[in-house]
Amino acid sequence: MSALHSEISSQPHERDRDIVLSARDVTVGFGSKIVLDRLNLDVYRGEILGFVGASGTGKSVLMRTVLRLLPRRSGKIEILGKDYDKLSEPERNQLDMRLGVLFQQGALFSSLTVKENIQVPMREYLDLPKNLMDELAHLKIRMVGLAADAADKYPSELSGGMIKRAALARALALDPDLVFLDEPTSGLDPIGAAEFDELIAKLRDTLGLTVYMVTHDLDSLFSVCDRIAVLGQKRVLVEGTVEDMLACDDPWVQSYFRGKRARSIVPREDIADRNDVNGAGAHSREK
């Protein structure tokens, strides 16, 4: 464990925060290949955590393991204070209702309309009359910034950005406490990605969500993430704020956050200070 990771993890204000996701000594492998080895990670209530790492290091593997889509070989995972392994099936269903997931490509059912896709979790977990489900689906559609007529469109009729928003509306269908986003801005143009970041931040603030975001998008990390965790060598190498990442001496972290593609990106605090001086307003990105 790096010195920075140890220092950040031991800070009193972090220890006192409400942990909504806890992974302890989690090991995941496929055959003889170990992907995650005794990994530890905490996600705190109300934060947007950006989870990053080189391609193939296991970022999505960890997310799918947390969601029980992949088995783990050892370790303990607690979500919202509950250990899945100790819950009955009805208790697991209750816990599942408090989670929302947006997969990388949206994973919408192609044979269902946007409205019907959003209603899938409602049909699985709730017993509601059709008119109420329709009303709730339209509410979620408005919540993610889609036009009302998107409700009756099929995924094949949607743009990439609309698919992301529709998938997010489905993730919010049951009013979850914790939302998992897998590469939410991948495939979006810079304007669409910025708007999606702003939407995530707005929903976090208005709905009180906790967001676990797997991403490669430096703009997202700098503009909306409260904290960042870096995966490498089969575990979390370092975690902390953007400023902590910029100060970290790990070679990969330095290359990622201070490399050529990061040259035009500056921390939110620096942008705010600059805008205060210029009177330009509070923007989250350097243009």
Rank of each mutant, 00 (worst) to 15 (best):
A150L: 03
I191Q: 14
L158G: 01
I141M: 14
E135W: 08
H138S: 13
M162Y: 04
G187H: 01
D189P: 04
A148P: 06
F180S: 11
L132M: 14
L139H: 15
M143L: 14
D134C: 11
I191N: 11
L136V: 06
A169D: 07
A137R: 11
V144R: 11
A167I: 06
I191L: 14
E183K: 03
A148W: 04
M162N: 06
E183I: 00
P190G: 10
L172Q: 10
M133Y: 09
I141Y: 11
G161K: 03
G145Q: 10
D134V: 12
K140P: 09
N131S: 14
L132E: 15
D177K: 12
D175R: 13
L146A: 12
A148L: 11
T185L: 01
S156H: 04
L132T: 13
L168C: 09
A167D: 09
R165S: 01
L139N: 14
D182E: 07
D182F: 02
L188T: 06
I163Y: 02
L168V: 05
S159F: 00
D175A: 12
E135H: 11
L178H: 11
E135R: 14
S156Y: 00
I163N: 07
S159E: 01
M133P: 10
K140R: 15
L139K: 15
E157G: 05
L158V: 00
Y154L: 12
R142G: 15
D152C: 02
R170L: 05
A171N: 07
L139C: 11
S156E: 02
K153G: 05
A147N: 13
P176R: 05
P184T: 02
R142T: 13
L136D: 07
S159V: 01
V179S: 08
D182W: 02
S156P: 00
P155C: 03
A166E: 08
R142M: 10
H138C: 13
D175V: 00
M143C: 10
L168Q: 09
D134G: 09
E157Y: 00
P190C: 06
I163R: 09
Y154C: 02
L178C: 10
A173V: 04
M133Q: 15
Y154P: 03
D189G: 05
P184Q: 00
D134Q: 12
A171G: 07
P176Y: 09
A167K: 05
G160R: 03
Y154W: 06
I163K: 11
D189I: 02
M133C: 13
M133D: 12
D152Y: 08
P155D: 04
L146V: 11
L136Q: 15
G161L: 03
D182T: 04
L181H: 06
M133N: 07
